[in-house]
Amino acid sequence: MNAWLTQHRAAFVQAVRRLAGNPFNTLLSLFAIGIAMTLPAFGYIVLDNLRSLGHSASGGQQISVFMAQDASTAQVDEIRQRLQQLPGVNTRFVPRAEALERLQAKQDLADIVASLPRNPLPDAFIVEPTDISPAALDTLRNEIADWPKVAHVQLDTAWVKRFDAFLRLGKLALTLLAALFAIGLIAVTFNTIRLQVMAKAAEIEVARMIGATDAFIRRPFYYFGALQGALGGLIAAALVFAALAQLAAPVSELAALYGGDYRLRAPTGIEVAILTGLGAFLGWIGAQLSVSLSLRNFD
């Protein structure tokens, strides 16, 4: 175990030395990887901001559930209980009297409401589901509509569907972009490691002759690839932060013009960690491919 740890530590230190030993080339590679990762990472954050903006612009997706005029208090209570038992749903009850008061409060409708012989409005529930995907909303609406004494369930899914389609298209484009840049990152690492293996040919040959296992020879290259990818991921995160900082003020101004208050969301610590880990993983893959192919020449 100690020998294993010692060898891993030595391989890691060797990888760091290789990175530091050629600072100009290292910086070029890191920026190439960083920029390749910035575009999909920035796209992800922008899409997520759009999703959040869309959600707040619609005031959250609500389903209005109107009870039948002849529904008794017990029947309304039963619907209330059923709604409360639904997972991932917030419910607010609007009694018919409160609804009428609200209507009366509107200046242009006050006279009309006052002239009505009786309250024409039904009891209602405002349902706010957490899952606002069009499919989930449709399922929920259909389920509630089948309940007894529910006269009407109102849900405007057209806007949600359009926005969701736009987001899905964006996600697809982003996935394709991310896949392309991931291949680019692997290619950059592959080439860097291939050059390193060529430069270290004598060392590899000697090491093999005196008892080095394949794992011993490969390990520093794997660490190098993973480290390079991870540092590239950190650079990408820094570039995303910088880009968002530039966009923050104009976006807030735009939101203010529409009477809203919106601030761009920056990547969270976990997202930065995922980006760094993804960079490390892709770098490791590039190193693995490169070392496997390059070391065949030594067999």
């Binding site: 020998a3 010692t6 060898q7 005196i210 080095a212």
Partner: peptide, 11 residues
Amino acid sequence: MLPLQIAGFSQ
């Protein structure tokens, strides 16, 4: 030191 590093000796 190379053979010793290969064998996993501490520095």
